[in-house]
Design a protein around this nucleic acid. Sequence first.
DNA 1: ATTTAAATTTAGAATAATTCTAATTCCAAA
DNA 2: TTTGGAATTAGAATTATTCTAAATTTAAAT
Lengths: 134, 134
Amino acid sequence: MKNAKINIRELGLTKQREVVLQVIRNAEKHLTANEVFDRAKQLLPTISFATVYNSLRFLKDAGHIGEISFGNGASRFDALTSRHDHAICTNCGKLVDMEIELPGEIVELATKFSKFKLESIELTLRGLCPECNK
Amino acid sequence: MKNAKINIRELGLTKQREVVLQVIRNAEKHLTANEVFDRAKQLLPTISFATVYNSLRFLKDAGHIGEISFGNGASRFDALTSRHDHAICTNCGKLVDMEIELPGEIVELATKFSKFKLESIELTLRGLCPECNK
DNA sequence: ATTTAAATTTAGAATAATTCTAATTCCAAA
DNA sequence: TTTGGAATTAGAATTATTCTAAATTTAAAT
């Protein structure tokens, strides 16, 4: 057989990028770039900070991960399973994933209104998480 | 008559904060903190950068302005007229306000799902703006 | 096997964005 | 007036992210 070797570059998954993706997939919460770096370094001690950022961008552009960002502090990243929404606590910053089914008419309305070619759409709820609301 | 003088501090509107608010209200687009600073300085040359940031936080907490933030670059601020949504171009960063009426059931669902005490909820559409889609 | 060219990684510097600090000023109430 | 608390100022400090240039890795071509 010819060409038994897989061209890793075509898939775009270098060792470093794979590690970054694993870290994010295995995380119990949404990590910042810094946290991803710390964990990635445990798996691949030579990985550099710049590579983590490069990988995050690459993985995001490739649609493997999502970036969530609010007015405060660093962006956080999550594994993209499917379309989902977020709730963020205005007091402690706690971030929660939500699965809300958006009615088609809402999506249509937003697309028409903005005249944008839609890539993604999400709902963001801000408020107090149960702990902060006590 | 007693107490004819208004206690400016109770309203919270110092000269600086008023200027910042004016700048945002009069802006033809969504400004970054930096842009707000530049414009505020033209109206009130002694205003400092820190004060702009403090004022932005104050005005935001008071509900007079909104902060919009994506994974890239600086936050942007807009005058809060009423609840509204945003579309952001993934290519050029163009930011557009939208007025989409969210069905009550969606809001309810999100509130129930997250168990958060709701403060605000908004829709964010990402995609290509008409110019970038050509 | 070797060479090549392009992409990627690395380490650290540089930049951008935001917050903090300490001294000063402003303001309303006493 | 004096006073105490809040706000402002200037600039330093911190945090977050991107850039740079040299070294390395990779797949394809020789």
